[in-house]
Nucleic acid binder design. Sequence first.
RNA 1: GCCGCGUUCGUCUAGGGGUCCAGGACGCCGCCCUUUCACGGCGGUAGCACGGGUUCGAAUCCCGUACGCGGUACCA
Length: 504
Amino acid sequence: MTVRTRIAPSPTGAPHIGTAYIALFNRAFAKHHGGQFILRIEDTDQVRSTRESETAIFEALRWLGLDWDEGPDVGGDYGPYRQSERTDIYREHAAKLVASGHAYPCFCTSERLAAVRREQEASQQRIGYDGHCAALDPDEAARRVAGGEEHVIRLRTPHEGICKISDQFRGEIEIGWETVDDQILIKGDGFPTYHLANVVDDHLMEITHVIRGEEWISSAPKHLLLYEVFGWDAPVLAHLPLLRNPDKSKLSKRKNPTGILYYRQAGFLPKAIINYLGLMAYRPEGDLEIFDFETMVSTFDLGRVSLGGPIFDVQKLRALNGHYIRALTDTELLESLKSWLLHEDALLDVVRMAQPRLEQLADFMPMTAYLFADQVPLDPADIDQAGKESGRAAEWIQFVQWEFERLVCWQPDGIRGCFQSVAEREGVKFKQLLGVFFRVFSGRAVALPLFETLVWMGRDMALRRMQYAQDSLREAGIGLSGKALKRLEKSYQERYLEEGGKDG
RNA sequence: GCCGCGUUCGUCUAGGGGUCCAGGACGCCGCCCUUUCACGGCGGUAGCACGGGUUCGAAUCCCGUACGCGGUACCA
């Protein structure tokens, strides 16, 4: 049997460093056994998935050298590798389960579901679907479905007994069936949920080992049940510990840079990142810390994975990166710098932005230096005053952060739209608002055109600089407290999100 | 709340009953090298969450407690 593993990211937002971490272990394991590593795009969430994000995932994983043997862009014998192109398959499989009685149509409205949950919360009961439609007569249910009534398909789960999950790292995990909900398999829009799509695809794509994040342990019973009712063998399950923020919470962009493309823009070398990610929860042997992917492949052993949630420490990554930079020859370093940002394509854009402002060629480097930096020097008091409304800069930066995260197409017009939308809603002059941001992104009051430079540096780096600014404001005592942030988030949702999404 | 997973220096980890008064790396501190800084070298700082067992012997096995994290969606 050939070992086949996969990474199955959801194309929503910026490619996440956690995806690379899981991908690394899957790829290393597959390659160790001479097997295949597959990339599958889980775009079953029609609302949040975008093609831009998918493309960025390809780009980010390739940059790290985490190539795949089969995937949407390279093909393979088990395609299509995009779940949105496999909906018929899921519907057929769901229909089989309905026919065999293992699943049933559910006609409950979201209002009723919400009411049920409120009641369960109030009476401190276990939260979950109450099985309202499970008892429906199958023939009648079939008639209602045929009549075009809106419905979802739910999995019929047992309500007693114990589900034993064999986890490659943890041994046997026992979860009582009474804690498992009648999971929705097919949503109202006809798309499958992760649970169904994932099981069907892993089986059809002949995935032998599912190495995924620990957040999936509690839904493993549903997956195992699906394998069982389909009459399939389940793959080996192995749940990796989640990467954490310094405060131990699950790695999040608010507290840590999580965008892979940020690390590229900031000048980290792929092999340093791979090495560092490999160090999270793993050590090839004894005290060995410096190793490349090939070493990881040749020595890979699932038994050496440690289970405590590792904190992603950028400082140590930086030290490791420095080690790799020093190991380069001078010409190799030069090549690295070139392929980083000192290549013609990138420089030509910078030259175009700088030209109207240049009086001497010697002005070029100082004028553009901030583009090639990670962090720029920030003066919190100056940032705050730039908006001419003391104390509001932190809020504006936060609103723009949220607008940036939501922006589909990272181009000048869309970026301008984000600023405009914040200027309008916050009642601040566009020019004043931008004054704040020139300082945030360049560390100066005067710089190259803002929207173009943002496109040039990329969304992840833009977000990172805003985070640096927030940190600096907070340190100066004019930033957002946790409480203020919560309030702001609510305000954002009410005033920005109600009027429909934005795109560029 | 309920369910599950986890717990060795500040951080990443080695360790899988005696060789551990716990080893390495990052960080931090000191010294050396050095026109500065960095690199490099040397030294130091700091940890087995707690309480019970099992055992001649426990960081290592078992139980409980505490704490952390995850899940509890028509998100993945």
